[in-house]
Design a protein around this nucleic acid. Sequence first.
DNA 1: AGCTTATAGTTTGACATCAAACTAAATGCT
DNA 2: AGCATTTAGTTTGATGTCAAACTATAAGCT
Lengths: 164, 164
Amino acid sequence: MHGTNGTDSRRRGKNGEVLGVSINFGPLANWVGFNLRMAQEAAFQAFSRRSQEIGESPGRFATLTLIARNPGISQTELSQANGRDKSSLTPVVEDLVRRGLVERNRMDSDRRTYRLHVTPAGKKILTMMTRCARLHERNLDHVIGARDRKRFIQILKKIATNID
Amino acid sequence: MHGTNGTDSRRRGKNGEVLGVSINFGPLANWVGFNLRMAQEAAFQAFSRRSQEIGESPGRFATLTLIARNPGISQTELSQANGRDKSSLTPVVEDLVRRGLVERNRMDSDRRTYRLHVTPAGKKILTMMTRCARLHERNLDHVIGARDRKRFIQILKKIATNID
DNA sequence: AGCTTATAGTTTGACATCAAACTAAATGCT
DNA sequence: AGCATTTAGTTTGATGTCAAACTATAAGCT
């Protein structure tokens, strides 16, 4: 039979003959939205694997950094800085508190809001996470190239803040 | 207990409200991974809103385009081109078939694999979706700037293909 | 003070996604 | 031929996310 094996990504006709055509992306190839998603997905997967090595969820990282850098931040402020809905944060903060990495106190002047702080134990974990993230960043830098890095980040920031 | 003493680095009024909305992002500010996620999230949300206007899910768009551009593509090839796991595709293709936008036939030479085609009805929907996506792209282009666009996409592609 | 509106955080329900286990079909080996 | 391995697609279970409904507090008005 016409051998079809997994290392051959070429398209084949109805009788299995090689067409020699790879995937046609059409307009997707030149569109920012699609390529942004593909890049983010690939980078996230790579970081996910790295995080697993130190037994952490990739999502914890930005959260813990933001609390450490902004002691007393509220959950709503945190969710905005982190680009996630506040309701997504509830189980994350719960987990960080349960593990003793974050402390959570009601504010005296407004009993609705919490103020978050990273504990010493949390700082230790954060140091490990940061080291892990730096390796990931070095990897990304290598792919992007030093020359374009700064401009690339600027553009990402512009998209995040100016879209819509 | 931390309470309301000097563990909060941010300036607050006498009732505790934050005066300056000045989040300190620490190392996140200069890291590609974080900014990539924030940009992708913002762009996706914007496209999501736009898709809703024509009553479509944003995820359907790339899928339908890829089928249209690669008639007879299999679900596994499609999932790879689309950067998603093949199992994520099952309900999507099911939905497209149910709505008569995509046709799905077993391949003669390999009864395991399907060959996907966009129907005339699917092509009509795709035209609408493409128009919608073009508006979104124009918006993104405006934010990015014509000068950097090409290079920016090149970098995104490099990340998607070369990471890890 | 009393009523109305706004805000911080949680709960709930709906999705999208991945990874692993699974089924059915094809291929390879002997 | 017979059995092991690989492959295409589905199912299942876990996770992360959003949006809307909810609670409890707080702030604004009159």
